[in-house]
């Protein structure tokens, strides 16, 4: 079996025994979705690459924190990437849009929802997101991709904190149902 076909589990064992080849295979497998996510959040290639590097190093050091019963290796790596990218974004407070218009102009990353139809999950989630009322969709996307906390969203959108939470809750519930129905 070639390295590129080795299952994720096997690669994690490799990481635990400090095997750089395993890390390289994981990189080849997941660097593109990780980079895409970091790029979507941070908006520039250099910072996004730094985040991807950090995320792989975190996985390399913290392979023990992976919980097999909580999801796939892909999800784990994407979750590390997400948290790190958002943390980087939050440290750059000076550069964060503070009006909704500014956010929307920045968020209209043309390729975000362009293609990706080859990804079945992606297609379903995208459809489910698109089916949400704009207010609910915005709240979720601004939190996830924009790195805004609930309190910041309340301020940004000029709505009470309880409304932010409510929109998130209902939006997430609908997404969950949509995902369940495709399983």
């Amino acid at each position: 079996m070639g390295d590129q076909e080795r299952p994720d589990d096997d690669l994690l064992h490799g990481l635990a025994s400090r095997d750089l080849t395993s890390l390289g295979v994981l990189y080849d497998r997941y660097s593109r979705p990780m980079f895409a996510l970091a790029y979507r959040i941070l908006g520039d290639g250099q910072s996004a690459e730094d985040v991807v590097q950090d995320a792989f190093l975190a996985a390399w050091r913290g392979v023990d924190t992976f919980r097999r019963d909580r999801g796939t290796v892909r999800n784990w790596l994407l979750s590390i990437t997400h948290h790190r990218a958002v943390d980087v974004l939050r440290r750059r407070t000076a550069f964060r849009p503070t009006t909704l218009e500014a956010v929307e102009s920045r968020a209209s990353d043309a390729d975000t929802f362009a293609e990706a139809d080859r990804n079945v999950v992606g297609k379903a989630v995208r459809q489910a997101l698109a089916a949400l009322p704009t207010a609910q969709r915005n709240t979720i996307e601004l939190a996830y991709f924009g790195g805004y906390t609930q309190s910041e969203l309340s301020e940004l959108l000029g709505i009470p904190l309880g409304t932010v939470k409510g929109r998130m809750r209902i939006g997430m519930l609908k997404l969950r149902r949509a995902l369940e129905s495709m399983r």
Partner: peptide, 28 residues
Amino acid sequence: GDVVAAIPETIVERTPSARLRDRVLAAA
């Protein structure tokens, strides 16, 4: 968490610069 994990699947993959792979391996 399962729902949140699905959100990044909506993005189109993007290829980082070729030197990033070497940087990651060197850092490790």
